[in-house]
Structures are given as C-alpha cells and as structure tokens.
Amino acid sequence: MNELLNNILFLPEQASTFAERVDNLHYFVVSVTMLSSLAVGTAAVFFFFRYRKRKPNQTTEYVVPSVKTEFLFVSLPLFFFLTWFVIGFRDFVFVSTPPKDAMDVYVMGKQWMWKFSYPEGPNGVNVLHVPANRPVRLLITSRDVLHSFFVPAFRIKMDAVPGRYTQTWFEATKPGTYQILCTEYCGLSHSKMLGEVVVLSPEEWDAWVKEQRKGALQNRQDALADLSLEPHPARMAEQGQKVAAEVGCFKCHTVNGEPHIGPTFLGMYGRTETLDTGRDIRVDEAWITQSMMDPGAHLVAGYPNVMPTFQGKLTGPQTAAIVEYIKTLRTPDIRTGASQGPTYEPIQ
C-alpha cells in the first residue's frame, strides 16, 4: 500500500524516520482532499445538469442556507484542517528538536558546494557520510548567501543562513546513497549545488571514521570531490584558498578590503595599482605570479618590502590555484568576511 501510494505520488524512497511520518500525513491529506473534492465536484456537476436552464429569462427560487448548513460549511473543513495541523505540527516539532544523543555534523553551504565537518574531523566536500540508525544533527550555516539543505529521501530541509546556525536532524534508516539538493536560490550555479549523503552501516561507519582520522583517505576524498558536479574554476579557487591559508598568505593579506601588511586580495585582480616606482600597472595573472615568486620586483606603493619569495615553495598548480582564487575575489558579489560562521580549516 505504502509502496503503491509512493509510486502514484512520485515520492522518493523513504530513508529516514521523519520520512515515514511525513508520508503518513501526506497520504491522509491526499486521500481526504481527493474524496472531498470528488464530493464537491460530483455535487457541482450534478447541479449543473439537474438545474440547467430550461427557458430564457427563467426565474428561480430564493434559496438561502440555514444556520445549520453554514455551521456545517465552517465546521467540517475546520475539523479536518485542525486535525492535520495537530499531526503536522507534532511532526514539525519532531524534526525541529534533535534528540539529545544526536551526533553533530556541521554543514556549510557556499556558492556552490556543500562542506561537511565532524567535530573531531574529518571534513568532506559535497559528500556527507553518516551512520545508519543513529540520529544526526546538522548545524547548518553559509559562507555567502542563503542556501537550503534538502535531502528528498529523508524529507528534511533547512535553510543555510550566513552568519548563524540553523539546525535540523534525521535518522537514516537504511544504508545507501541519497542526493542532496540546494533549494534556496543562490546564484548562477544554484542547480549545480548538489551533493550526496552516504549512509553507512555501523561497522562501515566505524571503519570509515577510523580511516579518515588517520588521514589515509584524504586523497580519496579529494578525488571524490574532484569528480563532483562543481565547475572547474571554482574548484581551483577553492584549492587556491586552501593553499593560501596553508602557506600563510592571510597573515599579511586580507580578503575583506582592508589593507594590512600587504595589499588586500579583495578586488586585486583587474585593479590598477600604483607601484613604488610611480608606474601604474593593471593587476593580471602575470603580475600576481611574479609577486609571489619575486615580491620585491614590482612593489605596490605604500607597502614595505617584507614578503618572502614563494619560489620553490609552491608548485605550479598551487600557484595557479592561488591566482584563480584571487581572481574570484574580483567581483562584489563574492562575499568575504560576511559570515560570522565557522572558519573551516583543512585537515592536515
């Protein structure tokens, strides 16, 4: 019966405890709706034929409803609506209050990917691993704009609001892979902001966590992320940001527009800078690369010549990634420093 209704309604499979509750209410609401609409529709169609016009300028009786009828019109829908509300709100409270023993996963949405971190590691991009039959609380935030974390198979959804955490929780009932979708419009690649939840059996989960915390699977994790649906330049920028954090660029360069020891990365690409020689240059890939390799060569006026060279410290791809990253800081629609949320550092 469940299976059949699920198919008729095109519902995805039920893979969480909440999904079963929601679907039960769904079936209840749909059946009452269909039956009552059928009743109203039948009555209407019957009236259309029974009381069709038989002669032009026909007169009719003056009919007004009795108080009893009007009472029925009010009380019947009110009864069903309030019943649904009671059931629905009970379930809503259920999904808004995570159980005390839930395990926490931090979820961060950013344009256009999902990042997951567990309090004691590891981190993941676009793939969330959770154990089956165990409540998982998601603490959701965003780095830039609103996103919304949606797993159809779990029937859960919660907006990711920059600068703060929202929460939801689920308890997956069977191992498998389920799709994550972003349901709050978040810009150009909104429809590409996909991810997946991998539900593992308890044994697999323990093994996975152990392996992750050793760091042995980090590479595989990266490879997985590479295969994700995320567009290539964004991926490079993402790596560039990681690398920049690792080698310490942010000790001297801010990304929020404020000058620090060095000029800010925000809006650097494409900007016209006055050098200490008095010459104006337009910042491009070549200049950024050269500044990393030979910082003293073309110094921006007003900044001390204190930057060490990164020649030999950065590989070619890493340099390119940092350049890509700085390029993403060019437009005002990249929000930096907006979020008061967690700063995710890569697991070493």
């Binding site: 909440f18 509750r21 929601v22 209410l25 769904h26 609401v29 749909v30 709706t33 009552s36 609409s37 109203v40 529709g41 209407a44 259309f48 609506f81 649904w84 509300f85 059931i87 629905g88 709100f89 009970r90 379930d91 809503f92 259920f94 999904v95 919304s148 949606f150 159809p152 029937r155 859960i156 959804k157 349901t183 709050e184």
Partner: peptide, 28 residues
Amino acid sequence: CGFLYFTVFGGMTGVAFATASLDVPWHD
C-alpha cells in the same frame, strides 16, 4: 468550472502546506 477546480485543489494543497511538517519536503 475551471476556477472551482483550481480553487479546490490549489486551496487544499495550500492547507497541506500549512501543516508545517509537509512543508518541510515541499518547500521551494
């Protein structure tokens, strides 16, 4: 007739949304 039909089904789905829990999977 069309109006009656759309109002009944549109209205009833609206009520279904208002149960709060059904809105969670349906929202957006």
